[in-house]
Design a protein around this nucleic acid. Sequence first.
DNA 1: TAAGATTGAACCATCAATCTTG
DNA 2: CAAGATTGATGGTTCAATCTTA
Lengths: 139, 139
Amino acid sequence: MHIVLQIVTAARALEKEGKRIFSPHGLTPVQFNVLNLLSKHPAGMRASDLARALIVDPSNVTGLLKRMKHEGLLNEIENTADRRQHVVTWSAKGQAAWKPAHRDYERSLVALDSVLTPVSRKGAENALKQLTEALILGK
Amino acid sequence: MHIVLQIVTAARALEKEGKRIFSPHGLTPVQFNVLNLLSKHPAGMRASDLARALIVDPSNVTGLLKRMKHEGLLNEIENTADRRQHVVTWSAKGQAAWKPAHRDYERSLVALDSVLTPVSRKGAENALKQLTEALILGK
DNA sequence: TAAGATTGAACCATCAATCTTG
DNA sequence: CAAGATTGATGGTTCAATCTTA
């Protein structure tokens, strides 16, 4: 199997693993990523900040935040300085969901790491870096 | 960056590259995969065959094939033996779309291969295999 | 009953067009 | 006009429930 297909296959398996880990905590993988980002930005983030960090289209963020606010995972901050900007922070419920999810996530990363030999991991890091840079530069 | 995130990032970049390559041919990446499979199965494939090969839920295939038939990319085969089974083949239009798409796809694989050193590729192959097997066995 | 496929609801993602605010 | 965000259309994905045929 070509390495490109191997990467896509592995990513799909990782995506499923993410769903498996996060769903007991009432989160999707993307929603966990949002909370994870907000855990590092207590003052809040704008929708455009999140779109850039998640590498997704800004139009995507609108619905994502709407659902998460509806679930009570996020709080919206009043922004009197520039009323175009929509700033969100995580709520108490969002923090409560994130904590055990993050614990399981870290645990899973360690477990996955343990199946790799140091040599293969180093090679993979180099190869993935080379490929990703080639794809971005080719754009 | 953790290798798991590197894989997901690389896969997303590859997905975008796939869209870029296939959209001029009027195809999405998944639609190309369907035609690619049908190119190896001239007698046709059942919806459940495709779901298994694409590693996708059967319910997904219904809409996918419906859109492709509507586009004229596929033909439906009458199956008198077992009327539950829905067998499709590629149409002339499907073949015409696949040929240049496949040429561009192969060209892209060669280009991506060329940015990898043999050592890093070998390491990546091993690492991805180790990870994917661990994820599947863990299920 | 079981196999094969479909439907409906929910989520994620993109793009083009639009709206609001600066 | 430009920046930030939203809306609507389209497509991919999953899951649970259902339908049809064997």
